[in-house]
Each structure stands twice: as structure tokens, then as C-alpha cells.
């Protein structure tokens, strides 16, 4: 496909005619969540359905993106199509931002309102009086019920700081790779792109060890009151996004090796790069509000 005539970038907006992938995707999603629902209700079929659904989902992504890549390399997309993809990606990232905003909001609410109120501050003085224990409104906390028992937190300037450095570094490497792509220096591109996702995976690995650390040495669990409730979902959802981003980077890298993209025509690369910067920024928020302050 790569050597398809490069001049047919047509004036017409390319409209595909029928595609099996979306419906496959819908079925996959349905199977996955249906299975998950059964799993949570202890129906034996649950785990199997989830596995099947996820497999189908992966198959769908491969197929769908495969088609898009081929069309793109076949130069069926003109500037307008390219712009649609860019805008689409940006708005998708915006929706992701809002998803995290929800969880950051929960953290903020807990720290600024519910915990102080439980401590009897402001208008909720009686909440503490009536409960009649000596709960101190302070952060970190697992609440007046001491849910999950005594725990300690992960010090910000240990692993988390290192992870911050790693992600920031990966932000630099991907930028270098991008410039290289623009300048047509494929070697540099391939090298720094590889570096980027390697850093990404390293980050995920360190996060995993940090979790083990938390569970084994800090008695810090998902069920450790509001602290655990905010700490784990926030960091886990972020970790999940890093993993996804890294996988997308690998795909883009393989395409680079295959000689895809031109200095002017490389939406996939840029889309993933934006995504990568987004997870980067989210992490900074996490480092400051979850680990540090």
C-alpha cells in the first residue's frame, strides 16, 4: 500500500461505504460489560464472557485501525479528513480530561468539605458532637470509622518523584521524535519513539511495585477509607491510560519501521503524541494533589 499513487489526495471528502467494525465493537462492548455484570453477581459465565468480549474488542481495534491505516496510506484522505481526525482526537482527549476531573473533584470535595465537616468544622459542628468520638479532621484519613485500619502513605519524594521524572523525560523524547519525523530523520525518529514507550512501560512497572508496596508495607488499600478510595482509582485510571498510550506508541513505532508517515502527513503520530502529553499533565496533577500536598 505504501507505494500507492501519492497524488490522488482527492478534493472529495472520503466517505467510507459500509463497515463491519462498529457493530463488532458494539457486540464486543456488550459482551464485556454483560460478562462483567455477571461476574460481579457471581455467575460463572462472567469471566469467560469478559475475556471473549475483550478479545473481540482487540480484534475490532486491529481491524478498524487496519482499514483506516490502509486507507490513509492509500492516500484516500485529503486535508479535510486529516483535520477531522485531529479535531476528533482533541475532543476525545477533552472528554478524558473531564473524566479525571470527576475524580479530582471527589478528592477535592473530600479534602475541603466532607472530612472537615466530619471533624465538626463550619456548619456541621454537631456532626462531630453527636457522633461523639474524637475524630481529627486531617488529611490523609480513612474517616471516623477508621475503615481499613491504621495506614501510612507513599512518600511523594520516593518512587512518585522518580516516576514524575520518567514521564517528563518521555514527554521530551516524544517531542524529539516528532521533530525528527518532520525533519525526515527516520533513525532518530525510530530511536526516540522506542525510548518513549520504554519509559512508559517502565513507569507502569514502577507503579505496580508501588501498589504492592502500599498493600504489603503501608496497609494502604483500595478500601482504606476515603484516602484509599481516591488514591487508587485516580492513580489506577492514570496508569491504565499510560498503558494504552504506550501500546499506541508501539503501534505507531511499528508503522514508522514500515516506513509509514511523511513529514507532512502523520496524524496517527501526532494524535498519540497529544494523548501522551495529556497523561503527562494528568500525572503532574496527581503528583501534586495526591502524593505531595
Amino acid at each position: 500500500m505504501a507505494h500507492a499513487p501519492t497524488t490522488t489526495a482527492s478534493d472529495k471528502y472520503y466517505v467510507p461505504h459500509g463497515s463491519p467494525w462498529p457493530i463488532i465493537g458494539s457486540v464486543a462492548l456488550f459482551t464485556t460489560v454483560g460478562g462483567a455484570a455477571m461476574w460481579l453477581n457471581h455467575v460463572n459465565a462472567g469471566p469467560w464472557l469478559v475475556t471473549a468480549g475483550l478479545a473481540l474488542l482487540i480484534f475490532m481495534f486491529i481491524g478498524w485501525f487496519g482499514v483506516v491505516i490502509r486507507e490513509s496510506e492509500g492516500r484516500l484522505y485529503n486535508e479535510a479528513v486529516d483535520r477531522s481526525f485531529r479535531m476528533g482526537m482533541m475532543w476525545f482527549i477533552f472528554s478524558e480530561v473531564m473524566f479525571f476531573a470527576g475524580f479530582f473533584g471527589a478528592l477535592l470535595y473530600a479534602r475541603q468539605f466532607s472530612v472537615p465537616w466530619l471533624g465538626g468544622e463550619g456548619t456541621k459542628l454537631l456532626t462531630a458532637v453527636v457522633r461523639g468520638d474524637n475524630f481529627e479532621a486531617a488529611w490523609p484519613t480513612n474517616g471516623p470509622g477508621q475503615i481499613g485500619g491504621e495506614f501510612t502513605t507513599i512518600p511523594a519524594f520516593g518512587l512518585p518523584a522518580i516516576n514524575t521524572a520518567i514521564l517528563l523525560a518521555s514527554g521530551v523524547t516524544i517531542t524529539i521524535a516528532h521533530h525528527a519525523l518532520r525533519a525526515g530523520q527516520r533513525q532518530v525518529l525510530n530511536l526516540f519513539l522506542a525510548l518513549t514507550f520504554l519509559l512508559g512501560f517502565l513507569f507502569v512497572y514502577l507503579q505496580a511495585t508501588e501498589y504492592i508496596e502500599a498493600y504489603t508495607h503501608h496497609n494502604l488499600k483500595l478500601s482504606t477509607g476515603i484516602y484509599g478510595s481516591t488514591f487508587f482509582p485516580l492513580t489506577a485510571f492514570h496508569g491504565f491510560h499510560v498503558t494504552m498510550g504506550a501500546i499506541m506508541l508501539v503501534v505507531v513505532w511499528l508503522r514508522c519501521l514500515k516506513g509509514h508517515f511523511t513529514p507532512t502527513h502523520h496524524f496517527a503520530f501526532e494524535g498519540v503524541a497529544w494523548y501522551w502529553h495529556f497523561v503527562d499533565v494528568v500525572w503532574l496533577g496527581l503528583f501534586i494533589f495526591v502524593y505531595w500536598l
Partner: peptide
């Protein structure tokens, strides 16, 4: 009219 919320006290 005021809500009665478990774990908190309204007046």
C-alpha cells in the same frame, strides 16, 4: 424540609 443524611447532622 431538610434531608436526614447518614453520618452527618443537619439542623
Amino acid at each position: 424540609k431538610k434531608d436526614a443524611i447518614p453520618g452527618f447532622v443537619n439542623e
